[in-house]
Design a protein around this nucleic acid. Structure first.
Lengths: 109, 109
DNA sequence: TTTATTTATCGTAGTATTGCGATGTTAAAG
DNA sequence: CTTTAACATCGCAATACTACGATAAATAAA
């Protein structure tokens, strides 16, 4: 009991859910926005930028990385995080497809 | 401890997170797709369509309703669920804005 | 009124998420 | 080699989520 069932849903539905879940947190939205807007792509200042502890930021970054939304490359003593283009494109496409399935013309009842 | 902090994030970030969280489950994705594709907009057959218990479906519907993504109107003994156009549009807009903040041209160092 | 149908709600067990202090780990600097 | 800086990981406490049986509520039909 209590565990999300994935066996009864399609691969596409499960995948989209994973990507959405990765984004479904204000801290991770903020992190993604910060990464997207930063020129240098180095994010050692995320801790001071947002108001969360270093351990918490690191954990959120790990989740975003696990979902494939970002990637990190070691840059000496710090790590450079950036959007992973392929999966971001995939997300945009899948999500666009999903959202556009609703036509406004269709009225209720 | 253990509660998501919203005080340190913007209203927009928190709102988007709530909408994404509502969608971030395969069952709720499936429910939304079913609602969008159904002509009749009546969803008493969601239980048989998906493989989840009636209580579970009802719970997911409630969450989608709470997030404002769908709305339900009583239709005799059953309930007619459909997409709530205003919030769906808002979601599309906010999400589009967020996703498009990433320009592919920007390379990672 | 009784019965059947449809949906909502309650209670509960199991699991996952969130945040953070403490502690490792790794690489540059001294 | 030692120190420092930047991250990652561990462990824990508090909370939220997920699924479902049982039960309630409401309406239509008999």
């Amino acid at each position: 009991m209590g565990v999300t069932r994935t066996d009864i849903f399609s691969e596409e539905q499960n995948k989209l859910a994973v990507l959405l879940k990765a984004m479904a947190h204000p801290a991770r939205i903020a992190i993604l926005q910060e990464i997207m807007s930063s020129e240098s792509c180095i994010n050692s200042d995320l801790v001071s930028e947002l108001g969360l502890a270093q351990a918490t930021i690191s954990q959120h970054l790990k989740e975003l990385k696990n979902a494939g939304l970002i990637q990190g490359t070691v840059e000496g003593v710090s790590v450079c995080y950036c959007i992973q283009p392929e999966n971001w494109q995939l997300l945009c496409k899948q999500l666009g497809h999903f959202l556009n399935a609703y036509q406004v013309a269709k009225d209720c009842k």
